[in-house]
């Protein structure tokens, strides 16, 4: 296949779009996955702990 300008443009206009949409779906699924809810809630509250020492 000839890798000229038009080929690259066609590739980026098709697969470039698909991978972006695929990636978006993955991010949404991860963010809304029910099992992750507890983990996220813990994470956002844990930074408010007053304890200022590394855990052992």
């Amino acid at each position: 296949m000839d890798l000229d300008h038009d080929t690259v443009v066609a590739f980026s206009k098709s697969w470039g779009l698909f991978y972006l949409m695929g990636f978006f779906l993955c991010a949404v699924v991860y963010a809304f996955w029910p099992a992750n809810r507890k983990r996220f809630d813990r994470a956002k509250n844990s930074i408010l702990d007053q304890d200022d020492k590394p855990w052992r």
């Binding site: 991010a27 963010a31 996220f40 994470a43 408010l48």
Partner: peptide
């Protein structure tokens, strides 16, 4: 106060 929405922070990150 914890961040309003942790999910939203993930989505806006990506």
């Amino acid at each position: 106060r914890p961040i309003f929405s942790y999910r939203l922070s993930i989505l806006s990150f990506w």
